[in-house]
Amino acid sequence: MTDTWKITLPCTREEGEDLAGEVRLASGREPPVIATEEADERDPERWLLTAYVEDAPDDVLIADLLALAPSATRADMLIEKLAAQDWLTMSQAGLEPITAGRFHVYTAAHADSLQPGQIGIRIEAGQAFGTGQHATTAGCLTILDRLANEGRDFTDVLDLGTGSGILALGIVKRWPQAKIIGSDIDPVSVDVAIENVEVNGERVGRGAGEIELVAADGFDHERLRARAPYDLVTANILAGPLVALAADIASVMAPGGTLLLAGLLNDQAADVLAAYEAAGCRLVDTHVAGDWPTLMLVRERN
């Protein structure tokens, strides 16, 4: 294996979230593998940007990375040469497993952490957002597990902004006969989600117990409306897109359908909720983990 270089620099939450989709560099170069994460859960505005490259970073790449995180300076940047090894395996070793209800999310490096009675979801660290580490993903999984324990049944499901496919996988494992479609604005995420479905022993497809995956900006894909109405919709994205998509999301939900919204901060919840109430939805529960609420709503029956 070749040597790998790791470049780390601080960024703001807004900058980090902007990098969850397709990344374009100012120089026009092919972007390196980039990951962003919270630096400290107690301060949700402080994030870290990490890039991995196989050649020593030159001035052009450094300028490109600083353009992605304009709040940082060259002095803030840490550049490390890593030993010749598989950086992906190494990075996965640092992702500790998380448990949300009966769900247990882990990487290959922690396969032995799965305990009897738990529902395992193996998600590898990579280019797609959503390894289960973030409080928003864990919040959605916690509510999904609770709904299953309460005997709720869902047959037609949309996972909007599927990322790594983690929520779609949780849904198919709790409701094995459900027909699920997941979408993401980033085609790379869709490819990664397909791989994760296969790694977890589930099926890609359009039938019962299968997950269909498409690349789409919002509802800009015919399959998302063709498969409506949905009795369950999950959307773990960002507050701005959640507000912008409120009317579209409500329009594809079945009357009485359940909606999980995440990716917003506590101080954004009122604006998000107002948009969905105006679209005919009603709040029925809130799960809060630190600064990150997960809202559960139902589509009012007309």
Score class of each variant (00 low, 15 high):
N200I: 10
P176Q: 04
I211L: 02
S164G: 11
G201D: 04
A215E: 06
I211F: 08
E212F: 08
T162L: 09
G165A: 07
G201Q: 02
E195P: 08
V172D: 07
K179P: 06
R206C: 13
G218W: 06
A178C: 06
G161N: 09
L213S: 07
G205N: 12
K179H: 13
W175S: 08
V197P: 01
G165R: 12
G182C: 00
W175A: 06
V188A: 15
G205A: 14
G165D: 08
P187W: 12
S183V: 09
I171R: 10
D191Q: 15
K173H: 13
G205K: 12
R206A: 15
A216S: 11
S183Q: 00
G170D: 02
I185D: 05
I194F: 13
E210R: 02
R206E: 15
G201I: 00
L169F: 02
G218E: 05
T162C: 14
Q177L: 13
N200G: 01
E195H: 11
P187E: 14
T162W: 06
G182D: 04
P187K: 07
V172G: 11
I211E: 11
G161C: 02
I180A: 10
E210S: 04
I185N: 01
D186A: 00
E210N: 01
L167G: 01
L213N: 08
L160Q: 12
V188T: 15
L169D: 04
T162G: 06
I171E: 04
R206Y: 14
W175H: 01
G207P: 11
N200E: 07
D220Y: 11
A216C: 05
G209T: 00
D191V: 14
L160R: 09
G201R: 03
V172R: 02
Q177Y: 01
G170T: 06
E212Y: 11
N196A: 08
Q177A: 15
D186T: 04
H221A: 02
A178N: 03
V188L: 15
I211G: 03
S189H: 09
E212H: 12
S164F: 07
L167A: 14
A216L: 03
D220L: 12
V190Y: 02
R174T: 09
V190E: 12
A216N: 00
I180P: 10
V188F: 13
I194R: 15
I166T: 03
V190I: 15
S189K: 11
G170W: 00
G165M: 06
S183K: 01
L169H: 13
G205T: 08
L213I: 03
W175R: 01
S189T: 10
A215I: 06
A208Q: 05
I181A: 00
V199C: 08
S189D: 05
G165K: 01
Q177T: 14
V214K: 06
G165S: 01
E202R: 15
G218H: 08
V197Q: 03
G218R: 00
L213T: 09
R203P: 00
D184N: 06
V204E: 08
L213K: 00
K173F: 07
A208G: 11
I181E: 12
K173P: 06
G161D: 03
E198S: 12
V172T: 09
S183R: 09
I166W: 04
L169T: 03
S183G: 05
A193D: 13
G170V: 10
V192R: 08
E198R: 14
V172N: 05
F219Q: 02
E198I: 14
V197I: 04
K179C: 15
